[in-house]
Design a protein around this nucleic acid. Structure first.
Lengths: 213, 213
DNA sequence: AGTGAAGTTGACACGGCGTCGAGTCGAGCG
DNA sequence: CGCTCGACTCGACGCCGTGTCAACTTCACT
């Protein structure tokens, strides 16, 4: 199952075709509408209207609103990956320096797309396709984190402890749910900063047995 | 907002009335059907049929399938609270002993009702009423945990660290999401044990700066 | 100018929801 | 015993959102 919604072997002749632009308009409409409506409260009709096409035209591009939402997600993951890169690359710095920084960068990327991400998490409770896609990414992240933990342990920078895959899993869930809830309750700066501090403290203590500065 | 769905000042004359029995039958039907269907895939018709009444009769008892699900939750929370009691009471034992035990007991209670709990979490993405109810409980748990952490710190058993409310919040989310995911993927014994170990390690490290035995 | 693929549309059938008014049941009372 | 009133039940209705279809238009390329 390759990255879903990848265009089938992109013709890539010239600038975006009319269809490409329509597709883009639909995606933009979804993102826009999600700013003040939950995915559950969003109908295909709303989206089509906002994109300037007939409702049935929507189905030429996507199977359902959840499929469109999933497509919207592709770009978001890329940004998240960029934010997390320093973590996965390892660092000469002490973790007390780069872990808080990475967590803040991740939350920043999350916040930039929070409407899409919140909608996606909500959708996992309803649409099997959305769930599978989300879980695919969760597994990838989890595997990456586990690898990182094992590398830190192997290098003697982190003490042995709970099996890395399980540890990676629970820490990832913690981040996922914390960010989701922060977006849900419209957390402000103060609130988010406290959350960052707590997240960093947990990661540092659980993986490196470090107290944050 | 008192515990929703509490009968209005229970008449409690004699044995359960016919209405009480019907209500119970509906709740049982929901719980039963959730064993092999998600809440999203469950229609009021299905429930009514399983409960032996007409679909419209359902609405005499509940506003929607989500209201019924929420009602079903009341009893579940009680069991969770019992499982967590040793934690909230504090203990003379070292945390390395009672924390893992409590986490296992909590996951046990979760597992006993996992269909209802998973359905409820799924419902929070769709139904505002379900979300509010769930978040109410999350806030209560979070507050309780924060209080406990502060008590441990005050007693000198736990070192100072991130603000207790934020720390309690992220740790609670970690548990919530980990249990949810374990149920979702039908985790087996081995899988769950590894999760317990990881959860215990994180709690101990983050709150008490302890490595688990 | 002609052709075929890409794109677009309104109309349709379907399924689930929530409500309503007309009814039934059953305990308590005169 | 029969009446009454509130608790309960039901079928029917109107509504809304979904997904599909066949017919039509547009457009890039010969």
């Amino acid at each position: 199952m390759p990255p879903p919604e990848a265009a089938p072997a992109a013709p890539e002749r010239r600038g975006p075709t009319r269809g490409d632009r329509r597709r883009r308009a639909i995606l933009d409409a979804v993102e826009l509408l999600l700013r003040d409506r939950s995915i559950a409260a969003l109908s295909v009709e709303d989206v089509a209207e906002a994109a300037g096409i007939a409702r049935s035209g929507f189905y030429f591009y996507f199977e359902s609103k959840y499929a469109a939402l999933s497509a919207l997600l592709a770009g978001v993951w890329d940004e998240m990956a960029v934010a997390a890169a320093p973590f996965f690359a390892g660092s000469d710095e002490p973790p007390t320096a780069y872990v808080p920084r990475t967590l803040a960068a991740l939350d920043d990327a999350w916040t930039r797309h929070e409407h899409v991400l919140v909608a996606m998490v909500d959708a996992t409770g309803t649409d099997p396709g959305a769930r599978e896609l989300w879980e695919l990414w969760m597994r990838r992240w989890s595997a990456g984190i586990a690898e990182r933990i094992e590398a830190e342990r192997a290098a003697g920078r982190a003490p042995a402890g709970a099996p890395a895959p399980a540890l990676a899993g629970v820490l990832l869930r913690m981040n996922e749910r914390s960010c989701y809830d922060a977006s849900r309750r419209g957390a402000g700066r103060r609130d988010r900063d406290a959350m960052h501090e707590a997240l960093a403290a947990v990661w540092l203590a659980a993986v490196w047995n470090e107290r944050s500065g």
